[in-house]
Amino acid sequence: MNITLEIWRQKDAKSKGKFVIYKLNDVSEEMSFLEMLDFLNNTLISKGESPVAFDHDCREGICGSCGLYINGWAHGPAHLTTTCELRMTKFKDGDKITIEPWRSKAFPVIKDLIVDRSVFDKIMQAGGFISANSGAAPEANSIPIPKDNADAAFDAAVCIGCGACVAACKNSSAMLFVSAKISQFALLPQGKTEAKERARKMVAKMDEVGFGNCTNTGSCETRCPKGLKLTHIAKMNREFITAKIVAEKST
């Protein structure tokens, strides 16, 4: 099939950037979306032009590197799919495909379609862990965890940190990402000890780095490639409210 691509090109963080149109012929239906971009880059290089830079690594939807805003959708039009898992079968001959980087004040563009998501690490550093030193752990089976809780914690833990929630949110809010970690640990007895403190610190960091506020619109939930749910945000809110109101003043 033949397609037209409209791609955001930006040389580096300081440059202004603009959309550039590329016509791409002989695209195979069997290509994945990123293989289509590889194919585009090949043709660009052979013409002496600069290839389009985009983040990608595992190409099987688990590392969270890739993330493109395709035709107005974070990760493209398919559901529960990362950009690398998206197939060209979702498009047809003659389509025009607009590709933009994630847009958020907290995710500045580095080059073309690559953005800097290091603020996610910063939020994790603020409290996204259980403070268990190596060697201090008790026998793994000494704390039974109800299967439902363990499963729920797993459902929260599948977040790949891709940032699609931020990209899709009209407010560029990172609450789904943050709440997934808070929720996962709050559901496990190991993580309960620090749950309140964790919620307080991670939320404070999230606010500090420039994400917007949640308005419970739910776009994040519909675009999350791993199917994380708004219930995690509610759980985070609960943890946060108890941390701020119910818990004793922290020193």
Binding site: A132, S134, A137, A150, Q190
Partner: peptide, 11 residues
């Protein structure tokens, strides 16, 4: 160690 770190292994 992994369990203590919050890894949600199947139960």
């Amino acid at each position: 160690q992994l369990v203590a770190a919050g890894v949600p292994f199947a139960r």
